[in-house]
Write a protein that binds this DNA or RNA. Structure first.
Lengths: 125, 125
DNA sequence: GCTTGACTTAGAGCTAACTCCAACTGATAC
DNA sequence: GTATCAGTTGGAGTTAGCTCTAAGTCAAGC
């Protein structure tokens, strides 16, 4: 698969794919004789994983560390597990925060709805 | 209240408070004769609100628009309500995404735990 | 009246994560 | 064999959101 095919399939720009490679998030991509990247299905799955993790805010740096550990082989299984567990905890914290803020917004919107109905009130902010 | 008191109370740096003011997120802060900012309780509540919204990713730009509408008075109640509702929807989408990714991470961590126990397996990424 | 310390401003600098650009190369169509 | 087009590289530029710096002001304590 060429970079533009992967780009379409994963909805990530070719520039970003090359950037991820430069940053060590993707490594050992095959090349054709002419030097053109030739992604495997496995590469694609990894890219999807990266996309998923990036979409919830895992940093390039954390992901770089994860794949760096990967390259060191089986002896880093525990380290990788722990790295993921740490990120998981942070995501969980953010999830709770998001839920609370959502509730707060819902309440605020309901206050607005009342104010709009009554046609007299103004809010403080 | 001085800027450093608000800073401590809200856990936001004075620089950030001044930055928010420059960006129009906070307006009409009282000043002492000497030109020093003198925040009211109400200002503090607004700052807490901003902090809460920023913590889940609402942009400075969106918040600026919200407070801009505010300054135009009661006739913008509906517009403000709708702005909040739009942001709420986006937060909801992100919440779902976060939940899915959390599940995915939990699954991956469980796969790691199995691999670590069996002491033979390696994963694909 | 001088020092100290918290404040003020305008504006520069920083970081993460892209995104774009210029110059080049290699394969394909005609 | 030359135009086209998709790819390549290194490096510059962009954006959001702070964060820091320099130079200055003001009030309080001694």
């Amino acid at each position: 698969m060429t970079i533009s095919e992967v780009s379409k399939q994963c909805n990530i720009s070719p520039d970003t794919l090359r950037y991820y490679e430069k940053e060590g998030l993707i490594t050992d991509i095959n090349r054709t004789a002419g030097g053109v990247r030739d992604y495997t299905e496995q590469d694609c799955k990894q890219i999807e994983f990266i996309k998923c993790m990036r979409s919830v805010g895992l940093s390039i740096e954390v992901l770089r560390k994860y794949f760096e550990l990967f390259k060191k082989g089986k002896r880093t299984l525990k380290a990788r597990r722990d790295l993921l567990a740490t990120e998981r905890e942070q995501l969980h914290t953010r999830l709770t925060e998001l839920q609370n803020t959502l509730n707060r917004l819902d309440y605020k919107i309901s206050v607005y709805d009342k104010a709009i109905k009554s046609k007299t009130k103004e809010l403080k902010f």
